[in-house]
């Protein structure tokens, strides 16, 4: 503590130590940035595959291979969407959507058949719902309910309705009513936008 009474020393000390730590962190960040980006890309790809009901392997390489084989990314306006292809023939479309959950925003992927008459499936990308309650939306049984649901744009009822109401097609999560409602709202609203607006743009490409 010899120089503690001087003014210059603490300032210089603080600058030196800040620069030192910041540089170390900057290097670590630089080294890992690519890996982190790959990880989030991989997650997104596996969710798109899941929404289309395409089986994929556990490892990163397999997911990328499957993804490149079946999925093509295209753009309409600023929005990226995913096209499912089998032997150069389009068999489906998927869109990334976002909306307000109970505690935070929920990001998901909605996949449709090529004629937009059916929902092929859904997958959740990010959410901040309570683990064990609303957080169960990303469990398989909940997501599987949304497979092959017929969509009728001319009907007055919402596309997705909870059982046991008339015309109900999906179950709620017991103990997580608010999250379930929020999820259904997000889906219904986005399906409507996609069927009435985005669909036209996509098919005209």
């Amino acid at each position: 503590m010899a120089k503690k009474k001087k003014v210059l020393y603490p300032v210089v000390f603080m600058i030196v130590i800040t620069v030192a730590f910041t540089s170390v962190l900057a290097i670590i960040n630089e080294v890992s940035a690519e890996r982190i980006q790959q990880q989030s890309k991989l997650k997104e790809q596996s969710k798109v595959l899941y929404a289309f009901n395409i089986e994929f392997g556990e490892t990163g390489e397999e997911i990328i291979r499957q993804y490149n084989q079946f999925i093509e990314e295209r753009k309409v306006g600023n929005r990226t969407y995913y096209v499912r292809k089998a032997n150069d023939e389009i068999t489906g479309y998927a869109f990334k959507i976002e909306g307000a959950g109970l505690w935070g925003s929920i990001d998901a992927v909605l996949a449709f058949t090529q004629d937009f008459n059916k929902l092929s499936g859904v997958a959740f990308l990010n959410h901040s719902e309570t683990p064990g309650l609303g957080g169960r939306i990303d469990e398989e049984w909940f997501q599987e309910q949304f497979r092959d649901i017929s969509l009728d744009v001319t009907a007055t009822d919402p596309y997705l309705i909870f059982k046991p109401s008339t015309g109900g097609n999906v179950d709620t999560i017991s103990g997580a009513t608010s999250t379930s409602k929020a999820v259904l709202n997000i889906f219904n609203q986005n399906i409507d936008v996609i069927l009435t607006e985005t669909k036209g743009d996509v098919l005209n490409e």
Binding site: K3, I17, F21, V24
Partner: peptide
């Protein structure tokens, strides 16, 4: 470490490791 800025230094060190 000068005594009167030790808290600043500690916070800096801790946050660096947390970010790691």
């Amino acid at each position: 470490t000068p005594k009167h800025i030790r808290m600043m230094v500690q916070t800096l060190i801790i946050s660096a490791y947390v970010i790691m």
